[in-house]
Design a protein around this nucleic acid. Structure first.
Length: 446
RNA sequence: GCCCUGGUAGUAUAGCCCGGCCUAGUAUAGGCGGCUGUCGCCCGCCCGACCCGGGUUCAAAUCCCGGCCAGGGCGCCA
């Protein structure tokens, strides 16, 4: 019987066009006929009456089957339904105090569009929680859960807010190549790819392209994938992640730091306003930060750490343990500025009056680095000198360097890791939670 | 690259330290039956597991070695 319905339903689908989403069903529709489509989330059969929870992209609504007032065929079909079956239901809305949200739908007819194989690999209601590894193996089912829907709606809203912000502030969205011929920054490990008869790499950053493009567009931003072949295995690292990059002509570090703090403030505000329900589901609060954020110099950080009993020699990178301590002293957002030049990438500008200090900065959220950037070098000779100091071959940057002969303006920029930002907005503790299909040191599927 | 921890039914766990009482307990999912207002419904019955290989021992889920897989951390970074 099910098979028959499934073959005829394509033909019949026109008359089964959805009239409402679940969340649009309210007590005012009492007595109206509606058509709903979605998936069975939960089933509670009390014998003479059966309750089905139907889920669609907007939420859930209760379908109630009172067996003695429903025709036999519908009762039979309802008996047959299982979690995660895909169905369309035509029924009458009924105002009902005892139902969730004060409303339910009494089915007049049901079609099964597809069945789900039982038992499912994990509990879609989330009451028997599965490990992250199991969940990622069955990610599509995992994403059905309300908490995950909330996470990805927040991620969507954050991206929406980011684009709004950049548009309002005169930035143009760009897309630079992800298949590249040479390392963009040196240092970080790139994934090699077979590019016909040549070797190519997956881009670890749009850095050089976005700098070049300031000649043409002055203020650019890119939201796109970046790849890092680093063997990190932590809750805050991925091998593929989305980087939010900006570059601005005629600007220095302080100018783009202001862009960053204003952007973060705006994103927090928008997510707070537009994602109330999602934040409630996640039991998370987003605090809208005040601007300007604190600006700590590298020297101040070193000295604060020293007072806390952690010794970091000048010119060394700050180890994770030290960041954790620092995060406790400075909850929420703060910048670290005036980094030693030697621990920053070659394109970060040394200070004119004190070249051992750079105009690079990091933006921290508690102990996690959420963005980094700075004023860039726009003088070709200095850039070549810095490449050599970092043991990079200027010859392999020929196409980048030639652009500096075409009137490269002073410029500055930064990059924010989208996933780390979304961790902050959702309160989740594992970065893989905020990516649909995460890639890390060990996970390549699904 | 290095370090730590773990692997028991579809899922999540108890048991492991101190080997035998484990025919491996519980919850949830799944199957069957019952139940007319559930919202983690309830009740009864059923199905279903010790990661793989080797070793120690009269005896191994439990101790030892190796492998595989997973989680977390370091370095590096967003």
């Amino acid at each position: 019987m099910v098979a028959q319905l499934m073959s005829m339903n394509l033909h019949a689908l026109q008359s089964w066009k959805r009239t409402h989403y679940t969340m649009e069903i309210n007590p005012e529709l009492d007595g109206k006929e509606v058509v709903l489509s979605g998936w069975i989330k939960e089933i509670r059969d009390l014998g003479g009456i059966k309750f089905l929870i139907l889920r669609d992209k907007e939420g859930t609504v209760q379908i109630t089957v009172p067996k003695d007032e429903t025709n036999e065929q519908i009762v039979k079909m309802a008996e047959d339904l299982q979690r995660q079956d895909c169905v369309s239901i035509r029924g009458i809305v009924r105002r009902m105090e005892k139902a969730p949200r004060g409303v339910e739908v009494i089915p007049k007819s049901i079609i099964v569009l597809n069945r789900a194989k039982q038992p499912l690999p994990l509990d879609i209601t989330g009451r028997t929680p599965a490990d992250i590894d199991v969940r990622l193996d069955a990610r599509i089912l995992d994403l059905v859960r309300e908490e995950n829907q909330a996470i990805f709606r927040i991620r969507h809203t954050a991206l929406e807010a980011i684009r709004e912000f950049f548009s309002k502030n005169g930035f143009i969205e760009i897309h630079t190549p992800k298949i590249i011929a040479t390392a963009t920054e040196g240092g970080a490990n790139l994934f090699p790819v077979a590019y016909f008869e040549r070797e190519a790499f997956l881009a670890q950053s749009p850095q050089l392209y976005k700098e070049q493009l300031v000649i043409d567009f002055e203020k650019v931003y890119e939201i796109g994938p970046t790849f890092r072949a680093e063997k990190s295995h932590t809750r805050r690292h991925l091998t593929e992640f989305i980087s939010i990059d900006i570059e601005e002509a005629f600007a220095a570090a302080e100018d783009v730091m202001q862009v960053a703090e204003n952007l973060l403030q705006y994103v927090c505000k928008v997510v707070n306003e537009r994602c109330r329900r999602e934040l409630e589901i996640l039991k998370h609060k987003v605090e809208v930060p005040n601007v300007p954020f604190k600006r700590l110099t590298y020297d101040e950080v070193i000295s604060e750490l020293k007072d806390a009993g952690i010794k970091v020699s000048w010119g060394e990178d700050i180890p994770t343990e030290a960041y954790r301590t620092l995060g406790k002293m400075h909850p929420y957002f703060y910048f670290i500025v005036d980094w030693p030049t030697n621990i920053k990438p070659f394109y970060i500008k040394p200070k004119d009056d004190k070249p051992e200090i750079s105009e690079g900065f990091d933006l921290m959220w508690h102990w996690i680095e959420i963005a980094s950037g700075g004023t860039r070098i726009h003088n070709k000779e200095l850039l070549i000198k810095r490449m050599k100091e970092q043991n990079l071959n200027p010859e392999s940057f020929k196409y980048h360097l030639q652009v500096f002969d075409y009137g490269m303006p002073p410029h500055a920029g930064w990059a924010i890791g989208l996933e780390r930002l979304v961790m902050m907005l959702t309160g989740v503790r594992n970065i893989r939670e905020v990516v649909l299909f995460p890639r890390d040191r060990f996970r390549l599927v699904p």
